[in-house]
Amino acid sequence: MSFKEKFIHYEWVQPFLPNYMKPLQEPRIEEDSTSLMVHETEEFLSDLASLSELPRMNKTFKRKIKGFMLKVKIKHKKLHLEMLDSKRSSASIRKRIYITIYRKNIKAEKGLGKCIDATIYFNVDGRNMVRNIKHHPLFRPVFLHLHMLDSSLSGSGQSHPTQSSLSYEEPNEHEMNVSTLQEADKNELHTEIKKLDQRYQKMNQNIYAAFTLMKKSITRCIEDFDLLDIEERHQVKRIIVKEIPDLLGTYQTLPPQQKEETEHEIILAIEKMDRFLKKITSSLDSNRMERMNHLLRVNKLRYEDKE
């Protein structure tokens, strides 16, 4: 923390600061919904940083999750992050968070991209508030992952491919790490599915039958995990790691009468997830064709005879 930043944290100084520079000191913001938003933002930024062919500029990525929306804007000079509570948010205090940093190759501060905006907007007791979150411990992981995304982008090569860049090169460490992580993800998800199958195979026969059908769609998604886009990977992971265990695990804790009453709704919920997964798998063939066309175009550029 610089001397200027330390100075503005003194209590006697803060009444003289503009609102956007005053440090956040509202304990009611530190609730479960905010912690979930921070966690999902970390995951979103991590997913973006793991992509091996991520565009380096002028691209916007969005992720909508029940209760809030996340947006990342990648530009040549800056990275911009928005974290917004929606109308469906369970938060007691609705908030809007905006963070903007310079790309570290444009303007750096202690080796990291300089932060030029870190504000949170919220309403407390009928008053609209604006505060600074740059050094708030709850949001520190978000800044860390934003800088990691910047580092990933900075190491992704040229922004516009040239003829020379189409020639073969040994995979660099970053590309090898991405490939290893993707393979690890697939193995982990396969393991989770096996665990779920063992855990629920003795439960209600009709529910297990619906789960077995959905498992085929899940397996297909895992096998072609590298062809899925960011949002599809996120949804597949969420279904396997969180939604299925939460749904079926809670069902198993119900007394017999309530199990009988909710059986049909549980089956419908599983079928909805299965339909969503089938939409993903149906797009895989078109993704393969797009990839094949891309490879053919690259092949033509590499090996076409020069007149």
Rank of each mutant, 00 (worst) to 15 (best):
V13M: 06
P15S: 02
F16I: 01
F16M: 03
L17S: 04
L17E: 07
P18F: 00
P18E: 01
P18W: 01
N19W: 05
N19K: 11
N19T: 02
Y20G: 00
Y20T: 03
M21N: 00
M21D: 01
P23C: 03
P23T: 01
Q25V: 04
E26Q: 05
P27F: 06
P27M: 01
R28V: 06
I29M: 14
E30G: 00
E30P: 00
E30L: 01
E30M: 01
E31D: 14
E31Q: 04
E31G: 01
E31M: 02
E31K: 00
S33L: 04
S33W: 08
T34P: 02
M37S: 10
M37N: 06
M37Y: 02
M37T: 10
V38R: 05
H39D: 12
H39R: 11
E40W: 06
E40T: 02
T41D: 09
E42G: 07
E42Q: 15
E43K: 12
F44D: 07
D47W: 12
D47G: 10
L48G: 06
A49K: 14
S50L: 13
S50A: 15
S50F: 09
S52N: 10
S52T: 12
E53L: 13
L54I: 15
P55R: 09
N58G: 12
N58I: 09
N58Y: 15
T60Y: 09
T60A: 12
F61T: 06
K62A: 08
R63Y: 13
I65K: 14
I65C: 05
I65G: 04
K66H: 14
G67M: 09
G67C: 09
F68H: 14
K71R: 14
V72P: 00
V72D: 02
V72K: 01
V72N: 03
K73C: 04
K73S: 11
I74H: 11
K75V: 00
K75Q: 13
K77L: 07
K77W: 03
E82V: 01
E82W: 09
L84N: 15
L84T: 10
S86E: 11
S86W: 02
S86A: 08
S86C: 04
S89I: 04
S89T: 13
A91N: 06
S92L: 10
S92E: 13
I93Q: 02
R94M: 08
K95P: 04
I97T: 13
Y98T: 10
Y98M: 07
I99G: 05
I99L: 13
T100V: 14
I101A: 04
I101C: 06
I101K: 05
I101N: 03
I101W: 08
Y102K: 02
